Computed example of a mutant assay.
Amino acid sequence: MKTVDQYHKWVEWSEEDQAYIGKCPDLITGIHGDDPVQVFKDLCEVLEDVISHFQGTGRELPKSKTRPMMEVA
């Protein structure tokens, strides 16, 4: 498993911003765009850069704390 796969990522529509927002709260606040598929791809690239920066500077990555919400029927 790649390090980036340990972190929960998602894309959702924001009425307020009128854009798709890509989030990974354990590592970054988010990115935005008009195409949800492209936003997810961009989010993954940004996260890879963040992880590389942490590793390159010898900083410890934060533990993944955010988990998807489970819907209860």
Score class of each variant (00 low, 15 high):
A19Q: 14
H32I: 06
V4M: 05
F54C: 09
G56L: 04
V4C: 05
D17L: 13
Y7A: 01
E16K: 09
C44G: 13
Y7L: 00
V46S: 04
Q18D: 07
G33Y: 02
E15M: 07
E45Y: 08
H53W: 15
G56A: 10
V37P: 03
V11G: 06
S64G: 11
D17G: 07
R59A: 13
D42C: 07
K2Y: 12
L27G: 00
V37T: 12
K9R: 06
V46W: 05
Q38W: 10
C44Y: 02
W10Q: 04
P68Q: 11
G56Y: 02
Q18W: 03
P62T: 07
S14I: 02
E60V: 13
K41I: 13
L47M: 07
V46N: 09
Q55L: 13
C44Q: 14
M1R: 12
L61Y: 06
K23M: 09
D26Q: 03
S14M: 05
Q6G: 05
V72C: 11
V50E: 11
L47F: 03
T3Y: 02
D34M: 10
V11Y: 00
P25V: 13
F40L: 15
F54W: 02
K65R: 15
I21R: 00
S64H: 06
P62L: 01
A73H: 12
T66Q: 05
L61K: 04
K41S: 12
D34R: 11
W10T: 07
K2T: 09
F40K: 13
E15V: 08
